[in-house]
Design a binder for these strands. Structure first.
Lengths: 199, 199, 199, 199
DNA sequence: TATGAATGAGTATTCATTCAT
DNA sequence: CATGAATGAATACTCATTCAT
């Protein structure tokens, strides 16, 4: 048992030590040699703790994901309107420099998972999706509970996740105004008297 | 006097002759040698009509795109409800085997354009987006004109495109039910008495 | 006969129109397509007047050579000491921007003739050498006649040509001071009382 | 524990095993595939020990250079007149078949270094030049010490190197008699009573 | 005489992964 | 447990030259 614990610990150690490396280089330019050197171990050792390059990249991305999810989790409890929460949920990755770097990474990961259809790849993608979905669901449920949202929004998390995915992908285009597009979308979902029915 | 060749025509000829090849191999496994052989010309000849591999892949994809856009264009005139049109707009690529192949190609193209940020790549992506956007807009405008859609849906094409992108990307996930997700989304946009408020 | 004359005239026309092109691009980056376009004829036409790329490059270089030889020829008649004339003979290609461009071209030509041992290549190299040799001989002979040079310098043109070649080649090295090296060499050849016999 | 390899030793091993290959094919026709096969390693292994093709070509040429320099070094100690030593210094590469092969290689290298002005290329050229210069200086200094040469020949190594370069380059010309040209040059430098003033 | 469409050979380099020690 | 030396597949692109018209 102790050994297993150690393995997990070392996995984390290696992943943790390579966070900056991954952010700087991106997935495509990251080499096992760099990872090994940065982690201070031999190349062969990496393969003692990870199945392949993907595996270790997942582990590192997971640490970023944990951060982002944690931030998003806090968002749920913030004293904001539901709409505002949804807005922030979708724009959090576009906000500061750190978010941008994570975004770039996620886009790169998306690109890989779009072509490499390994089981582990899909599993990871799905787990990630589930985590984001859960938070979104919380926001929506609370919105409904607080009377800000109609009952029909229960179960709408899936749609919002899909839209978020599209937002992330289409943000690559030049002249794409995320805030504008997102607001237009939210206006569509939550028609307000002032907007929907201009006298 | 030398033969004067219609460059545009030959471009199309080459592109046309390589459609199957691209569908079978995908973008990543397509080689210039294969293209040349399939088109029945020398490798050098390819470069007389295309700037680089990207250029020719774009041209071939464009032929698929033209087909899909044409089908979508016909959709606009079909005697269907606006909602049904939007539904079909989003699912057309998921329908038959042919659509599936195009879908695979588009996903691969998306993956590439997500990481290779060349000017030509972005330009092509944007052009494609504009074409789809235009059709969507037609459907929406008509829906509004016919009174099926509220005025607020004018300009909603952007949101729908983004959702479609997300749909395409997330469709890679196992157990992802496109029809279900799309219906849920449309229900959200067009709350009907029967669906939204089941007595 | 008329046709032959025309051929020669057209050869010159083409060569003349491509002088700048060759100077800008160098031999290595010059393409037949560019030559044809610049000369305002078809690629095939080039081969009506020239045997191959080398042939046309020679023709163009020859026009430069003619210029340089003409300048050098003038040098012979200038009211300068023989030593000064020899100095200028060797440095003329290093002097102004124009000389530099010719120099670069000659170096490139030298590189080619060092590996491509075609008969035409050798012939051209030899012809060039002969032309420079003749001028050098004039300078030396005159120097001897005027009593500035000892009799033993008769026939020394060959040595000086070889040194010039070396100068041209070694000038590629960083920190190589042409003037210094050349002066040192000339001091060696023409020992002056102040330098050769101190005290 | 993994095997620790002496990188320098392996570099030499690979270089050594490819000497013949380089001499047979020349630089231009040498492929990495051939090098790897000849050295009995994989292509990737080559790049573990060399940065690029240039790097390995330099290393191989260096082994030839070491031989030639060693022979030249011995020349310094031979019981010959200074003039004879200088003569041999310049003709050593033209002597036997082996020298001829080295010469061909050097000419090819010269051709490349004349057009490819990379830093590493220049550095290598300069190092080589320095090594030959040093030996020449030894010969000259000794000649001066022994009273065979006038004091003015101190520092003349540079001029002689340049002449040697020219000799190497011009030797490509048909009908170029190295011995004759070199003797003419040496006669010029060392005027003897019998030669300079024939009664 | 002029043209320009067609051609096709030829090669360096990267890097995830393995396995002998 | 750890290591790091060895591996090898896979591919775009240029351009001088030809020859049918």
């Amino acid at each position: 048992m102790a050994i297993i614990v150690d393995k997990e610990a070392k996995r984390r150690d290696i992943a943790l030590s390579c966070r900056d490396l991954l952010q700087e280089n991106g997935i495509g330019n990251l080499t096992i040699a760099q990872i090994a050197q940065t982690a201070g171990v031999g190349k062969g050792t990496i393969y003692e703790y990870f199945d392949n390059k993907e595996d270790i990249v997942f582990e590192i991305i997971t640490t970023f994901l944990r951060e982002d999810l944690s931030r998003l989790q806090q968002l749920v409890t913030l004293p904001l309107s539901t709409r505002e929460k949804l807005f922030r949920f979708c724009t959090t990755l576009f906000e500061n420099e750190k978010g941008q770097k994570h975004l770039e990474l996620f886009k790169e990961f998306l690109a890989i998972s779009l072509t490499h259809k390994d089981a582990s790849m899909l599993r990871f993608s799905q787990q990630t999706r589930v985590a984001f979905h859960a938070i979104l669901e919380q926001i929506l449920d609370e919105g409904i509970t607080r009377g800000e949202l109609e009952e029909r929004f229960r179960g709408a998390a899936g749609s919002l996740i899909i839209f978020s995915t599209g937002l992330m992908v289409d943000s690559r285009l030049e002249g794409f105004d995320i805030q504008h597009e997102l607001n237009a979308f939210l206006d569509l979902l939550f028609p307000t008297p002032t907007q929907g029915t201009p006298s």
